[in-house]
């Protein structure tokens, strides 16, 4: 293969370029994470808008007849497990930053377990409703939130799980003595950028969980 033909097909980088593009990747994780939160915010805000819009218009007096509520115990449990998952993600990330990779992994896997339980409870709750989906504005909004919550939990689950899986493979790929928290290898650096965004997203999810727990069960 001639050099000319080859240069059209294979990217080559000087060390400076490799470093520059690595920076770009890491920055993309940061920017992308924030933009993703913006995207989800607009989606979740649409649901919150729906809640308040139907509540205030109260068509036919059917916003919430007799103050029906989705099973509160299950609801509180779902919220608790989601919140614990977020807390673990944040605390784990703190430990990670100070070098405690193992702590983060334990926290991460526990968070994944908590999310699985929350998701299971959310689906179980849908089978235990004391109302029919179309019976009131509240009932409808609850269904939408429950489905959204399952989706949101899947996103969190996926992100955390892929990071954990990645960290396991990284351990054997990194030079002896380096951990993913302190290695200067490009993969470890990207991993840290990814993890930072993931933790940020968990914090956002915690806020959403609090908001909708209050909307659906408390007020």
């Amino acid at each position: 293969m001639t050099a000319t033909a080859r240069r059209h097909e294979v990217m080559t980088s000087t060390p400076e370029e490799a470093e520059y593009e690595l920076r770009q990747s890491i920055n993309s994780y940061w920017t992308g994470g924030r933009l993703l939160v913006g995207m989800f915010t607009f989606f979740v805000a649409s649901l919150a808008f729906t809640y308040f819009y139907l509540r205030s218009s109260n068509s036919g007096g059917l916003w919430r007849p007799a103050h029906v509520t989705a099973p509160t115990g299950t609801g509180a449990a779902i919220f608790a497990f989601s919140a614990v998952a977020a807390l673990l993600a944040v605390v784990g990330y703190r430990r990670f930053q100070s070098g405690g990779v193992q702590d983060w992994k334990v926290a991460g896997w526990t968070a994944v377990m908590a999310l699985v339980i929350a998701m299971g409870l959310q689906i179980y709750q849908l089978t235990q409703l004391p109302f029919y989906p179309g019976s009131s504005g509240y009932a409808s909004t609850f269904i939408a939130w429950a489905v959204t919550n399952v989706f949101l939990l899947i996103c969190l689950l996926y992100w955390m799980e892929t990071l954990l899986a990645q960290s396991m493979r990284l351990r054997s790929a990194l030079p002896v003595g380096e951990t993913v928290a302190d290695s200067a290898s490009p993969r470890a650096q990207k991993f840290r950028g990814n993890l930072e965004s993931c933790t940020f997203f968990f914090q956002f999810a915690a806020i959403v969980a609090v908001l909708f727990w209050a909307l659906i069960y408390l007020i």
Partner: peptide, 29 residues
């Protein structure tokens, strides 16, 4: 776009899960 997706999502729920987001008579609007 997320708002459109949310609106479509509520519409899909109305027509599949029989919710009442856009049905005035059932507490929707």
């Amino acid at each position: 776009t997320p708002t459109l997706v949310a609106g479509g999502f509520l519409g899909i729920l109305d027509r599949t899960a029989q919710t009442a987001f856009y049905v005035n008579e059932h507490g929707g609007s």
